[in-house]
Design a protein around this nucleic acid. Structure first.
Lengths: 340, 340
DNA sequence: GTTCGTTGTCAAAGCGCTTTGGAGTTTCGA
DNA sequence: TCGAAACTCCAAAGCGCTTTGACAACGAAC
């Protein structure tokens, strides 16, 4: 069933039917209702490709999903996507996901943009000096980035959390508890959030005249396995840490395993604060020793980003160009006074 | 830059340029190279919407993502998607993801199909008597389901793992170890895999004249929190279990927490076998007591499904209509002889 | 009675691509 | 030398929709 058939069936022109469907005023209410009823009965749905071709819009936002045989799927990605979807469904928007080799993200993004398949772009996993930013700016298509790109002028629309502040606050709390030996279990070093969290820790330590030696920082993709490995290494250090900052509850999972296996008690021998993205399957309050965390909901960020992006496409704006969300520091049992 | 501009630039007709690009034989090799070079230089990319309108195909597979404010994002979903993507990227296919209220999955699927946005459909999270199946069959669009639908004639293309066999084997192993009191920590009861795993356990027990009382089965969405709750309940039973079958390593995470907190030793006081989807962030060999599992890679299933689906669209087939993958039973330390 | 807005409708152009049905050139065997 | 068979290439139609510009029909205003 297409427009032509529908309009012939109704004895109307395609113009009138189209207008009736799209809420234009210059059509008789009786006619409009007749059309609407026919649509109900026939189950007619406009062909999106044709609609897009004619209008240039089709209610979709595009994103690139890095993927390759050895590439870890990221728990955080799914959670974020759910947030995006939660909002998108309210506006009858959909996503076009272009899988891409991690080495070719820029190319994939360009292809996606000029494929004419999407109205707006979303990018995440920002890196320092991210090469996608210049491309996005040159594209004349709405976009929004989740996170920021360290080292790039922040003159692009983004939504980020205050990673530096979160880890600054967390470190400060641990310092107040008397800790002096810190380790940072961070995400991949080229990612923006990792850079900023690092910075937060370093500057809090610097206020007390302390440093964060390179041997006390680990940069790895955020799986529990990596958490365990890194933690085991930390515990081998000549001066083992009593305080751990951790970029994800997933990493913490592994790290705590290493702590326990070393016969140490979390919250007593060693304190740990992790960043909590509020993953529904991994709640910090459910850890055997409940985790002190910096918290910010990844899903909520997804919802908000979809809201802004869709609003921009529909020109519902104006939206703030840039948003920086504060995190909450929630104290539970995994932090305690430094052992002496 | 569009076809018209490109062809004018080259002094050729649109026909010839189009044919040169799409590998048709009736074009001079020299001309083809000239076209290809121009494409390189200008960065021309055909408009997908137009392509789709003209051909009816556009290299995309569609799926519905259930999502709502209270709805759990599923770790398994992300992992599976990564698998799909891994294969799709090789064929320059992309996904169209339509988020939908969980109550309206059938409607969303229909809308997605007749939107003309996709060449093929994929569905998962199959339920018993799944209402999407009749729709799919009536749609005359290629589709593939992950899993099966209990109670429906299996006359549709699917890829599934042998859930019943897996849990039958697992139960049998535990029986051989002397266990007599079983509990099953299963996924949501309306889902097909949960039904079949239940069946596997029941039939293995029946061979020994044992039953699985309703109080010994839990049906919950697969989060570690639910795992803990259910396990706590099991441990309160007048006759507490010594053997646990568990539908996911995520559930196992919580269950083991409950076991430990109850002062019981995994692999001694209580044995547990979990199904392992090979989630990269949750490896059974890394649990404090390594987990005995039935294993089948979710990502591999994603790759295979994309392969079949894309092959069908491109008519590369023939592919087997139905595939049933065996799982592996891998024995680690979480299973041991029944305590007496 | 003519003129002028309104209102409701339509025919046709156009979005960027593929594909059908030729048509002009060469090539080659008879 | 000629006609048939390749080779190359092209003009135009068509995919299903939106949107522009025009046109009747109808009162209201002059």
């Amino acid at each position: 069933m297409n427009l032509k058939q529908l309009s012939e069936m109704l004895g109307l022109s395609q113009t009138t039917v189209s207008r009736a469907l799209n809420g234009y005023p210059e059509v008789n209410e009786a006619t409009r209702e007749r059309v609407l009823r026919a649509v109900q009965e026939t189950g007619y749905r406009p062909n999106k490709a044709a609609q897009r071709l004619a209008t240039g819009k089709a209610g979709s936002i595009g994103l690139v999903m890095p993927t390759a045989p050895g590439h870890y799927s990221d728990v955080h990605f799914g959670e974020f996507l759910t947030g995006l979807g939660e909002e998108a469904v309210r506006h009858d928007f959909h996503f076009v996901i272009m899988p891409a080799d991690p080495d070719d993200e820029v190319g994939a993004l360009r292809r996606l943009a000029i494929s004419g398949n999407v109205d707006a772009l979303f990018v995440a996993y920002m890196r320092g000096h991210d090469p996608r930013l210049p491309l996005l700016k040159s594209l004349s298509m709405p976009f929004l980035v989740h996170g920021r790109s360290f080292g790039t002028e922040p003159d692009y629309p983004y939504l980020d959390i205050d990673n530096e502040g979160a880890f600054y606050d967390a470190t400060r709390l641990l310092l107040q508890l008397g800790h002096r030996h810190f380790c940072l279990l961070n995400g991949p070093g080229h990612l923006d959030f990792a850079i900023r969290r690092n910075k937060g820790v370093v500057s809090a330590l610097a206020e007390r005249g302390l440093e964060l030696p390179e041997s006390c920082v680990s940069h790895m993709s955020m799986t529990d396995e990596h958490g365990q490995l890194a933690m085991e290494r930390f515990l081998q250090l000549p001066e083992p840490p009593t305080a751990i900052l951790c970029s994800s509850t997933v990493l913490a999972l592994g790290a705590i395993r290493a702590v326990t296996q070393a016969g140490l008690k979390l919250g007593e021998d060693i304190s740990l604060i992790a960043h909590d993205d509020v993953l529904p399957h991994l709640k910090p309050e459910n850890f055997s020793v409940p985790l002190t965390t910096t918290r910010s909901s990844l899903r909520a960020a997804g919802v908000r980003i979809a809201e802004r992006l869709i609003g921009t496409v529909k020109q519902d704006g104006p939206f703030p160009e840039q948003e920086l969300w504060k995190t909450e520091l929630i104290v539970r049992a995994s932090t305690g006074a430094a052992p002496r």
